[in-house]
């Protein structure tokens, strides 16, 4: 090889390893956090701490999610974290696309499970890239012209505005555009989760952590387990938000902001913490 090489050639290995690393930290880690947060719309229903602001079980989900969002928004240097994340995603995406373009799929001839996953890893990468861009552009940067119904996401009204986006209208009526957005979300998060779980499996080979076939198989089970869990959270989140009535959610949110009059006391179930009337 010639001694005069460009930066890409000289730093090739570092870039490849960084590509692999960024997929896990921060992107993968963020994905886990993000899905945990989002799925609080479902698991939050079991969160009794949310009862101070929620009255119905379903409202607990909305409240918990709002708390999670508030917590995240309250993190110090949140913008810095976000920028690091965006840069990581951009780096991972640019190099990922570049690397993916060096291969040629051949699952038509070699129909092995690993080969299918090789192909899916690349396809899901493209899908995830599109999805993440759409997701961030519409919900974070407020490009509402990309959203059917033109709604924008507001972190103070996390559940309701999200539900509105997934349903395709501000008033919570389900529109065709909304269904399409929801389906795109299903595809997008499914791709992202697969891409992460499968990437985690291949990363262990790339870094030389799993060498023997047995080790690769064992780690594969771990990744499968993780992927299944994340997938459950991802789908639960979408189903949770898509089936949420934004108007009802907004009531909870406003109550948490203190801008909405509390509902009539009789409608409120007694807080769980308080002991029953003697």
């Amino acid at each position: 090889m010639s001694t005069r090489q460009g930066f890409l050639e000289r730093r090739y290995f570092l870039l490849r390893r960084l590509h692999s690393l960024t997929g896990i930290v921060p992107i993968g880690l963020f994905l886990i956090m993000h899905l945990t947060t989002n799925s609080s719309i479902v698991w939050g229903m079991m969160n009794k701490r949310a009862d101070h602001s929620a009255h119905a079980v379903s409202e607990r989900g909305v409240a918990t999610f709002q708390e999670e969002v508030n917590w995240i928004n309250g993190l110090p240097a949140i913008l810095l974290i976000e920028i690091v994340l965006w840069l990581s995603i951009a780096f991972h995406a640019v190099f990922g696309v570049y690397y993916a373009r060096t291969g040629r799929f051949n699952t038509d001839r070699y129909r092995y499970q690993d080969n299918w996953r090789y192909m899916l890893q690349r396809i899901t990468g493209y899908i995830a890239l599109l999805f993440i861009f759409y997701h961030v552009a519409t919900l974070r940067w407020g490009w509402s012209w990309l959203v059917p119904g033109g709604t924008t996401w507001d972190h103070a009204y996390a559940s309701s505005t999200l539900a509105a986006a997934l349903r395709g209208s501000a008033d919570g009526n389900v529109t065709i555009g909304g269904v399409l957005v929801s389906l795109f979300y299903v595809l997008g998060v499914t791709s992202s989760v697969f891409h992460f779980a499968n990437g985690l499996w291949t990363a262990a080979i790339t870094w030389g952590i799993t060498i023997s076939v047995q080790a690769q198989r064992r780690w594969g089970m771990v990744c499968l387990g993780l992927g299944t869990g994340l997938m459950a959270m991802a789908w639960a989140s979408i189903i949770g938000f898509a089936t949420l009535d934004p108007r009802k959610a907004q009531i909870v949110e406003e109550r948490m902001l203190g801008t909405h009059a509390p509902p009539a006391p009789e409608a409120t179930p007694p807080p769980a913490e308080s002991p029953p009337e003697p």
Binding site: F13, R16, Y112, D114, N115, Y118, Q121, T206
Partner: peptide, 14 residues
């Protein structure tokens, strides 16, 4: 380590 090296493996395992 360089371009075309081991990191170009895509783990298709064919």
């Amino acid at each position: 380590l360089g371009p075309g090296g081991v990191s170009d493996c895509g783990n298709a395992q064919n």
